[in-house]
Design a protein around this nucleic acid. Structure first.
Length: 407
RNA sequence: GGGAGGGUAGCGAAGUGGCUAAACGCGGCUGACUGUAACUCAGUUCCUUAACGGUUCGGCAGUUCGAAUCUGCCCCCUCCCA
């Protein structure tokens, strides 16, 4: 299957800037870029599919550049609903450092920072050299701006598209980067760039967007318990990532397999059949979780995650060997708490519960298990003596939230 | 610059002097069911407590026995006109 057809089959193409793209993608070697703003210090699973598309294109002979928005991150890409909170310059710098390292480690891409070429443009040059190419009426008609007109949008965010357009042009001029790939919400910014390149350089640039990865109810994919699933294993353990993926909805798991794994069409279609005939076995979910965790963290981490899963969902914790318990505990958040405190205090002090009231609520509702036993007494004492192993106590909240408390 | 309408818990939205820690909806969390699901049902959702209590309705200062509700000043947002 040619790369273009493959991307279409995987459902990874939402909009294309020109029908010529099909031929170019299949038969040429293009330099393209994909950008991300440093709004956090790690990439998360939501970024993953767009980075994978770069990898797929690279495998098909194209040349990816990853751009981190050291400049644009300080301005803020308009969200549909409200103004973004500004991030401090120090934070931006820190995030760039982390993201750059991560992108190089996981994907092996070249990384550039748009701060390098935007920082020296002064206001006057900006207005004369770039502002003149943007008609306000045109900018106002962009979907993202139009949607913000009732709520309000600052000049800062309004200007964002100009900066992104400028990036595209800069990379076009200096690196012969002729294509941009991004999420569908970037369409407005991308077309601004294509037009700037046409107007100012008289050249044609190309782009395509990917559909947003969503859950069956249309909400954003990638959060569990309100927390993002990070690619950094210090922030989200491979076990947690495995759990997140293995819990994918039946209605969406095939879509996820297409966008997040390198499994072939045949393999995925076989799994699709399994979802229909034997949904309770969840083979597609297991394949998805295994593939992604292996691709990101490696085979060894996958095996650990599988082991922990097996232990927690199949066996009785107390019957496990010490080394199995240790392996399981490594997958969870570790918290340190004073010795000999009540369970309520332990939950609050460790940060598992946000208040004593919440901790008491969980305990009285029977959602807390300590070392495998359900505890409904607020005054239950958590101590070293009762620890499962090495002063560590395993706390389970709800059906599948585990924490380790060390005393 | 002029005029109008607003700011209530994570969000939306009631409440216009005491019975209000504040209806209702959404979202979140928990339990039952289940496929570690979905659906459905039940509970719970400011802080603290065994109970009492404490701090809240943009901010500050007042009126009052008593204020989210009345008054003054300030801050912020939206719309219309210029």
């Amino acid at each position: 299957m040619k790369i273009y057809d493959e991307l279409v089959w995987r459902g990874m193409i939402k909009d294309i800037s020109s029908p010529k793209l099909e031929d170019m993608l299949n038969n040429e070697s293009l330099t393209f870029y994909i950008g991300t703003d440093p709004t956090g210090d790690s990439l998360h699973i939501g970024h993953y599919s767009s980075f994978l598309i770069s990898k797929r294109l690279k495998m098909a002979g194209h040349n990816p550049i990853l751009l981190v928005g050291g400049a644009t991150g300080q301005v803020g890409d308009p969200k549909p609903t409200a103004e973004r909170a500004m991030i401090s310059k120090e934070e931006v710098a820190h995030n760039i450092e982390c993201l750059t390292k991560q992108a190089q480690e996981i994907f092996g891409f070249e990384v550039v920072n748009n701060y390098d070429w935007i920082k020296d443009i002064n206001v006057l040059d900006f207005l004369r050299d770039y502002g003149k190419y943007f008609n306000i009426n045109y900018m106002l008609s962009k979907d993202i701006v139009a949607r913000r007109l009732d709520e309000g949008i600052t000049f800062t965010e309004f200007s964002y598209m100009i900066l992104q357009a400028l990036d595209f042009m800069h990379l076009y001029e200096t690196r012969n980067c002729v294509m941009q790939v991004a999420g569908q919400d970037q369409w407005g910014n991308i077309t601004a760039g294509i037009e700037l390149i046409r107007k100012k350089l008289g050249k044609e640039a190309y782009a395509f967007t990917m559909p947003l990865v969503t859950k069956a109810d249309g909400t954003k994919f990638g959060k569990s318990e309100g927390k993002a699933i990070w690619l950094d294993k210090e922030k989200t353990s491979p076990y947690e990532m495995y759990q997140f993926l293995v819990n994918s909805e039946d209605a969406k798991v095939i879509d996820y397999l297409k966008t997040l794994t390198f499994l072939s069409k045949e393999e995925i279609e076989a799994l699709e059949e399994k979802v229909k005939t034997e949904p309770h076995k969840r083979e597609a979910q297991k394949a998805l979780a295994a593939e992604v965790v292996r691709d990101i963290h490696g085979e060894a981490e996958l095996q650990k995650a599988l082991k922990i899963t097996e232990v927690l969902f199949r066996g009785n914790i107390k019957e496990l060997a010490d080394d199995e318990i240790k392996a399981a505990m490594n997958g969870f958040e570790q918290k340190t708490v004073q010795d000999g405190v009540s369970l309520t205090e332990a939950l609050v002090e460790s940060g598992i519960a946000s208040s004593k009231r919440e901790a008491r609520e969980w305990i009285s509702q029977g959602s807390i298990q300590v070392n495998g036993e359900r505890i409904t007494d607020n005054e239950f004492i958590v101590s070293k003596e009762k620890a499962l192993i090495e002063n560590k106590t395993l706390i389970k909240r709800g059906k599948r939230n585990y924490y380790v408390i060390e005393q």
